[in-house]
Design a protein around this nucleic acid. Structure first.
Lengths: 128, 128
DNA sequence: GAAAAAATTAATAATCATTCCTGTTTTTAT
DNA sequence: ATAAAAACAGGAATGATTATTAATTTTTTC
């Protein structure tokens, strides 16, 4: 994995994502880091999130609530979205080899990867 | 399925989506329908796409190229995104029952549905 | 079939996440 | 240490989507 992370700002963004188990948006990342880096710029956060995503060091999650969320866990996993509260949990469940293979014959091209989103109601919301 | 579709505009949007196998964006739908409905408004397209999505009569696809795309096929299926040309194909491949069940034990809630995105290179792009 | 009520539309303004731009600062390479 | 390259801060611009409002169309009721 490419390890060209010079700046304090970029490293702080990556560290934050790797230390959290939730999936913060760019805005949340910006507001969180601003507390310790008062003149951090929002553009810097967006630019580095885009760069880190392209380098594969973080994952971008879309289609949750209109804004993009980011995930510092790079090992393959799925996501569970609570349709009640909007929370996004990691689901460490491996369907990988088999899923790509099974779908291959139904597909007009070569599959390289996949991403599974599960939708439902989380335990907290079920209690209500 | 609820069938409360009064207006010409709403019906035209639904018909268009059901007659196409690709997954047009709101803008493409707007420009296409405008040819036969010259004073169609973009807001009408967006409002009806949102409504039809909420009613479950169409599906919204996010995270493809920054803009939302829409799918008139309601039977459960997956999608294959070509990372080369951006094309989105339907993949009629059923992993349903098993996938939700298998993931259930790894999940902090009750799974109701899922959506699988496959990423790869389509046959056209492979030839190049 | 016409009048009243409800729903929908067109047009336009507003919003808001994200990207772009410019001049400055930090990092890297020599 | 110095020059070149990369990255930053701050703010302006972009662009997809949503909200507003008055007018029109559709549905309902008689």
């Amino acid at each position: 994995m490419a390890t060209l992370n010079y700046s304090k700002q970029r490293q702080a963004i990556l560290d934050l994502l790797q230390s959290r188990k939730d999936h913060p948006s760019a805005e949340v990342i910006y507001q969180t880091l601003r507390k310790s880096m008062p003149n951090l710029s929002a553009g810097t956060v967006y630019r580095n999130l885009k760069l880190l995503t392209e380098l594969g060091q973080i994952k971008k999650l879309t289609g949750l609530d209109g804004v993009d969320h980011f995930d510092g866990t790079t090992s393959p996993h799925s996501h569970f979205i609570c349709q009640c509260c909007g929370k996004v949990d990691d689901v460490f469940f491996e369907a990988d080899e088999s899923l790509n293979e099974k779908a291959a014959s139904h597909c007009n091209g070569k599959i390289q990867s996949h991403h599974v989103y599960f939708y439902g109601t989380c335990n907290e919301c079920l209690k209500k």
